[in-house]
């Protein structure tokens, strides 16, 4: 199994930390992982993206052009990355702030109202974990107990009290993800 993922949105949405938790979860189940933050000229424009690869085998390039899954959290990223999903791949997005919705027919498209659900939970910082939950429902590449272990590893001890809230947010994402296009 190899899953090549791009997570893209605004800086401050928790894009990089979502990728880090996903990568740590992969390590917890003995897989190879890489986490490569955006290093294109676009990084000055306020967008943030990270390429995460989880694989049973040694990972070649940490920098990719085509992805199995794109997790898209703003319009700029939609414009940039919709076309970079491999045919038969998956696009997951939050419709909040999206003006032109994805139109491809050769990929599976899902949406998760992450921003709205985070507001409902009363904590906008749960946003990225809601989106992660939606992703893991669609692509169960890491087990939830390994995500929990990943959180324990990646969060400093003083923040461990927040882990139950994060798990709750992941579960909320799992329940609320919706299919938009199925191939």
């Amino acid at each position: 199994m190899t899953e090549e993922i791009i997570i893209a949105g605004f800086g401050g949405q928790g894009v990089l930390s979502m990728g880090k938790i996903l990568a740590y979860s992969g390590i917890m189940q003995d897989q190879e992982v890489s986490w490569m933050p955006s290093y294109g000229p676009e990084m000055r424009g306020g967008t943030a993206n990270v390429t995460v690869i989880i694989s049973d085998n040694r990972i070649s390039s940490p920098v990719l052009k085509k992805f199995d899954t794109a997790i898209i959290l703003n319009q700029q990223s939609m414009d940039k990355f919709e076309s970079d999903v491999k045919p038969g791949g998956t696009l997951l997005y939050d419709p909040n702030g999206i003006t032109s919705h994805p139109e491809r027919k050769d990929i599976n498209i899902f949406k998760i109202p992450g921003a709205a659900l985070a507001a409902e939970m009363g904590n906008p910082k749960t946003f990225n974990m809601i989106v992660l939950g939606a992703f893991l429902k669609v692509k169960p590449i890491v087990a939830i107990e390994n995500v929990k272990k990943g959180l324990e590893k990646s969060l400093p001890e003083r923040h461990h009290k927040l882990i139950p809230l994060n798990i709750e947010a992941i579960q909320k994402g799992m329940v609320n993800v919706e299919s938009v296009n199925s191939i």
Binding site: E32, V33, W35, M36, I59, P62
Partner: peptide, 10 residues
Amino acid sequence: DGAIGQMMEK
């Protein structure tokens, strides 16, 4: 280089 320096891996 900056890529190997900034990226995270196992």
